[in-house]
Write a protein that binds this DNA or RNA. Structure first.
Length: 869
RNA sequence: GCCGGGAUGGCGGAACUGGCAGACGCAGCGGACUUAAAAUCCGCAGCCCUGAAAGGGGUGUGGGGGUUCGAGUCCCCCUCUCGGCACCA
């Protein structure tokens, strides 16, 4: 089309209808909202309105939001806006998880200081968030890499240290050669680094700081039971992660003389009832006793080293479960304290040093792994438990019975001395008591959960506030000297240990105790420390003499709704729960759990796979905003599926949503005149659309009544979705139906049969319903309707059941459960009449024929089922 | 292996405590408007058979059984799939 033709079209006498062009609308409002942050500020905690703290997980400032963020924030923002409209005092903050490796990598690659890189990214992402219309209270912004935040990490660390919850020990750590740093167990995925999925994690011995998370093992586990506002999935994952296992410790005396590692070997078992079937002891290859036994013998040492290598390799490959079992007899024996029997001691590559005691009693008859091992090395297999039915007949000749399930609970003991004949659950109790009475064992509990190693050999993190002095040893930095500032000019490379150890001004320090030359700790903290408590800082972000104000926290906490990705179901959420308990014991807070309700949204995928640069299936939010607008992008992310499910991104779907918003926009813009009339008639207050008949008593035309009914049904559905299941896809579908219904009334409007007061009210409420999902569009239409002020006031519409009610009901009529006819009756028709009408239906009579009607089922408002024989 | 989700048209998905399967949207088809196209508006649409058509009949929620007047929904067994944990003693 030529330029001339374009102009001609534009100047055509028939004025083209106003088009929905999101860009100018969204830019206008985002500029306004940015200039007026007070719009979103929470009221002081003296507010009479009930508080509501809605929190989305803070992002890492990578430089650009991805669709997962958009989805997460669209959910949170819809909720925050809805709660505002319901009259709550809402806290809806945002911040930056700003420490971490990518900043260092960028520094190396592009020669930009991490701080600069991070701050630039934050600015970019803030622009994106503003453009997307998220209603964050930026006056409470928290950035974890700034000293006014991380000094409190250091302060907390000192407190943890005082309370004995932080300690230092040499430990084998997971080392990612790519990151050149230590990883927490939680950061190892299938033997590889969680950031470098292709990089195998190695084992290395280093002095590390640990936080005693295990002090709270039981509390963290028991607490899960009370978290009924959390997804079952997350609760299960946490239970598994804590991995509580009840059993018993039993000490076997070593046969022969005692060495440096003692004279007993202690085993952990959950099945003490099978102890008479123990035919060997299996030790982890790194067990101190194995080391002691092997030190004397070169041959054995070599074989043991091989077992260590095999286990290390399997661990690195993330396939410890698939390891081929190997073992070696140490030449030594231990004595079973129950029957005084001598059993051989082996070292085996499938026994883990970091679970239980690193030693087991091997019961081949009742454990698959032990069975496999015993078969391979020809060890004795002795049956000591049989199912109740066989058990009563059993005698020693059953020793050849096949391997029985390890957890055969309905079973009896045989060949077990004085315990023979007992059911095994009872035997567990009696035998544990027996062991305890005689001093060679006791009931105990072990956990999978380990203490949290927080030392990182990285630059871009919180310096650990500790000093090493030749005379005084490990000395905490005095509180008055906090923060220990992270130096700005640092040469970062991936080689070797901590970059801070190469900064003399940082490293060299005087001992706070004796004043002698000393050396600073050069490791920094795991960034999960920041995210363990950042949400408390939002409640008093400028507090200068403490991490946060306890009163402010007491008002806002617990978080009413926390929203984030399921990938944080274990790490971040367990650490946060730990941290809250630690702060409780420190006296800062009074509650146990940080978040009342948790919601984990599903991943955003494209073409069946997680979006990634490698696969080239990344959808950029900026791109979507440019093509369809922020509102369409947001609404689509909520409409495509329910928030807890995986979302398969489809650009055509965004287009459809855009079409819907466009329809809503054009309809309202076309009929803003009704609002003016409505205002005049309503004396400034908002008229309520009359029930059935219009305000003047004349019944509404059927299509208008249909709109009115649909409006109230929609308000009900949307309100309920917010309160319960959060199926915003159905909320939005309902609003679409309402808009479709409105389009069907154009004739009525044109002919003046649609009362302006009713129309104005429908439009107004339609806009209010849209507000949590499409805030820009809603703001624009709100203004066009002549309304003033923020939509975020106490404005959420109430639905009126009388208006939502159907006037007529269509009953489905079934014969023997098969749909045969439909009858339409007025809503209040009595049951008998409906039954009669259903039976009188031609189609029904034809189907029934001369069969006998046995009974007729009536379901009010739904159906009639005629049962015939 | 254990634990927890999930499987519904060509596609994304609806169906709250058992009660008309397929709402809403995408893609598709037909019509209106237009010189034409786009946009927009209105309509059709699970699949199969039958009929010129209106219509009629059958079938249908991963598979197999069951309970029920009635099952996508409840029970039992199985398959596939996603996620978590895993020689955890």
């Amino acid at each position: 089309m030529s330029e001339k033709q374009k102009n001609m079209t534009a100047n055509a006498p028939e004025p083209a209808e106003v088009r929905y062009d999101p860009a100018p609308i969204e830019e206008k409002w985002s500029a306004l909202w940015k200039a007026d942050p007070a719009l979103y500020a929470a009221e002081p905690h003296t507010s009479q309105r009930p508080k509501y703290y809605v929190l989305e997980m803070l992002p890492y400032p990578s430089g650009a939001l991805h669709m997962g963020h958009v989805r997460n924030y669209a959910i949170g923002d819809a909720l925050a806006r809805h709660m505002w409209m319901r009259g709550f005092n809402v806290l809806h903050p945002m911040g930056w998880d700003a420490f971490g490796l990518p900043a260092e990598n960028a520094a190396i690659k592009n020669n930009v200081p991490p701080r600069e890189w991070t701050q630039r990214n934050i600015e970019q992402m803030k622009v994106q968030m503003n453009r997307l219309g998220f209603s964050y209270d930026w006056s409470r912004e928290v950035t974890t890499c700034l000293p006014d935040f991380y000094r409190w990490n250091q302060w907390f660390f000192l407190k943890l240290h005082e309370m004995g919850l932080a300690y230092r020990r040499k430990s084998k750590v997971n080392w990612c050669p790519e990151c050149a740093t230590v990883l927490a167990n939680e950061q190892v995925v299938n033997g590889c680094c969680w950031r470098h999925e292709e990089t195998t994690v190695e084992q290395k011995e280093l002095e590390q700081w640990f936080l005693r998370t295990t002090k709270y093992s039981d509390e963290l586990l028991d607490g899960i039971e009370k978290l009924d506002g959390w997804p079952e999935r997350v609760r299960t994952m946490q239970r598994n992660w804590i991995g509580r296992s009840e059993g018993a410790l039993v000490d076997f005396k070593l046969d022969g003389q005692a060495g440096a590692a003692g004279d007993t070997v202690s085993v952990f078992t959950t099945r003490i009832d099978t102890i008479y079937g123990a035919t060997s002891i299996q030790l982890a290859p790194e067990h101190p006793l194995v080391k002691e036994f092997a030190s004397a013998e070169g041959d054995l040492r070599e074989q043991v080293d091989e077992l260590v290598r095999q286990q290390g390799k399997a661990r690195e490959a993330g396939d410890i479960g698939g390891i081929e079992k190997h073992g070696v007899f140490t030449g030594r024996y231990a004595v079973n304290p129950f029957n005084q029997e001598k059993v051989p001691i082996w070292a085996a590559n499938y026994i883990l040093m970091d679970y239980g005691t690193g030693a087991i009693m091997s019961v081949p008859a009742h454990d698959e792994r032990d069975y496999e091992f015993a078969k391979k090395y020809d060890l004795e297999i002795r049956v000591v438990v049989l199912p109740r039915s066989i058990g009563q007949l059993a005698d020693e000749h059953h020793a050849e019975a096949p391997l029985l399930p390890y957890t055969e609970m309905e079973s009896l003991l045989i060949n077990s001395g004085e315990f023979s004949g007992l059911p095994n659950d009872e035997a567990i109790e009696k035998m544990s008591a027996h062991a305890e009475k005689h001093g060679f064992g006791k009931k105990t509990v072990t956990y999978r959960l380990k203490d949290w190693g927080i030392s990182r050999q990285r630059y871009w993190g919180t310096p650990i506030p500790m000093i090493y002095c030749g005379k005084c040893g490990v000395v905490p930095v005095p509180e008055k000297d906090l923060p220990v500032l992270l130096p700005q000019q640092v040469d970062i490379t991936l080689m070797g240990g901590s970059p801070l150890s190469r900064v003399p001004e940082f490293l060299n320090v005087k001992c706070p105790k004796c004043g002698d030359a000393a050396r600073r700790e050069t490791d920094t903290m795991d960034t999960f420390v920041d995210s363990s408590w950042y949400f408390y800082r939002y409640t008093s972000p400028r507090a200068e003499d403490r991490p946060f104000d306890s009163q402010a926290a007491a008002y806002w906490f617990p978080i009413d709704q926390y929203i984030g990705g399921v990938e944080h179901a274990i790490l971040h959420l367990i650490y946060s729960r730990f941290w809250t308990r630690f702060m409780r014991d420190l006296g800062l807070v009074r509650h146990d759990e940080p978040a009342e309700r948790m919601f984990t949204q599903g991943m955003v995928i494209k073409d069946g796979a997680k979006m990634s640069k490698n696969k080239g299936n990344v959808v950029s939010p900026d791109d979507m905003v440019a093509r369809f607008g922020a509102d369409s992008t947001r609404v689509y992310s909520l409409f495509a599926t329910s928030p807890d499910r995986e979302l398969e991104w489809q650009d055509t779907g965004v287009e459809g949503v855009h079409r819907f918003l466009s329809r809503a926009y054009r309809f309202v813009m076309r009929h803003t005149g009704a609002a003016r009339v409505g205002h005049e008639h309503g004396n400034g207050s908002h008229p309520r659309p009359g029930a059935g008949p219009g305000a003047d008593g004349i019944p509404l035309p059927p299509k208008v009544r249909a709109v009115q009914r649909k409006l109230h049904q929609t308000i009900q559905r949307v309100t309920e979705d917010f309160q319960g299941r959060w199926h915003f896809n159905t909320s939005i579908a309902a609003i679409m139906e309402l808009v479709n219904e409105l389009y069907a009334t154009e004739d009525e409007i044109a002919s003046g049969k649609f009362p302006a007061t009713v129309l104005a009210e429908v439009q107004r409420r339609l806009v209010l319903l849209l507000a949590p999902f499409a805030p820009f569009l809603a703001a624009e239409l709100w203004e066009a309707l002549g309304e003033k002020g923020s939509l975020l006031r106490h404005l959420w519409p109430e639905f009126e059941p009388a208006l939502a009610k159907e006037d007529e009901i269509e009953y489905a009529v079934q014969v023997n459960g098969k749909l045969r006819a439909r009858v339409v009756v007025p809503a209040e028709t009595p049951e008998a009449e409906v039954r009669e009408k259903a039976l009188a239906d031609d189609k029904v009579r034809a189907t029934v024929g001369d069969q006998q009607v046995v009974k007729v089922i009536f379901v009010a408002g739904k159906l009639v089922n005629v049962v015939v024989k």
